[in-house]
């Protein structure tokens, strides 16, 4: 194969590859926000954790005591991510929610977790997607999230008596048990930062 022919073929291949990637890149740039939050947004802080994530990763020594006393074993670790978050704990409510027992706060040797009464824990707030939740789209009755909530009426209740549409109240501490029990495959209830509100906003 001559050099000229080789170069021509290589140039053709590269330009085909680049040309083929244009639609993909455009789709990535122009697509609306994905329906499911990206992986790291599903990582919630532990109960009683320092408010600032950077403060938390500076204070946490990664001993794993919080997880070792957790009765439902809901505390996971950034094991392989490296960087500043390595070996620090998080909770993924889609895997398992926190039962607010407070053992992790008692056992933490550092200031990363401080003992907080369960009503004043702040792990985020539940947010409901009213375009997917079964009762909100009139696909039957459910009430699983309201039934499981450890804080009761001040955290989540039905919109009106005997109508199974859940509404999150400001008393929600974001423990994530509702996410764990939600029967809808796309999990229309999720835990988000408090500033993002209790109802998913859709841009249509």
């Amino acid at each position: 194969m001559s050099r000229r022919r080789f170069l021509r073929q290589a140039a053709t291949g590269v330009s085909l590859l680049l040309g083929a990637s244009v639609p993909y890149g455009l789709a990535q740039l122009l697509s609306p926000e994905p329906a499911r939050a990206p992986e790291e947004r599903r990582h919630r802080p532990l109960p009683g954790a320092l408010k600032d994530a950077a403060d938390f990763s500076a204070a946490c020594i990664g001993c794993g005591l919080c997880s070792e006393v957790c009765p439902p074993n809901c505390i996971l670790f950034h094991e392989r991510e490296g960087g500043e978050v390595v070996n620090t704990p998080y909770i993924n409510p889609e895997y398992k929610g926190c039962i607010l027992c407070g053992k992790c706060m008692q056992v933490c040797p550092t200031e990363a977790l401080t003992e907080t009464p369960r009503e004043r824990v702040d792990m985020g707030i539940a947010q409901i997607d009213r375009l997917a939740c079964y009762p909100w789209v009139d696909r039957g009755i459910c009430g699983a999230c309201v039934g499981i909530c450890p804080l009761g009426e001040r955290a989540i209740r039905f919109k009106m008596w005997n109508q199974y549409r859940p509404v999150v109240q400001q008393g929600c501490v974001g423990c994530g048990l509702c996410v764990e029990v939600c029967p809808h495959p796309s999990l229309p209830i999720r835990i988000v930062d408090r500033s993002e509100g209790t109802v998913t906003r859709h841009r249509i």
């Binding site: 990763s57 500076a58 990664g62 001993c63 070792e68 074993n73 094991e79 960087g83 500043e84 978050v85």
Partner: peptide, 28 residues
Amino acid sequence: GAVLVAAIYPPAIIGREIYYAVALGGFG
């Protein structure tokens, strides 16, 4: 702003890796 010494300190590594392997389903 992270306790990096924990990542290169063998006893800390062993303690948590055994825990990861047994209770969280895999070594880190």
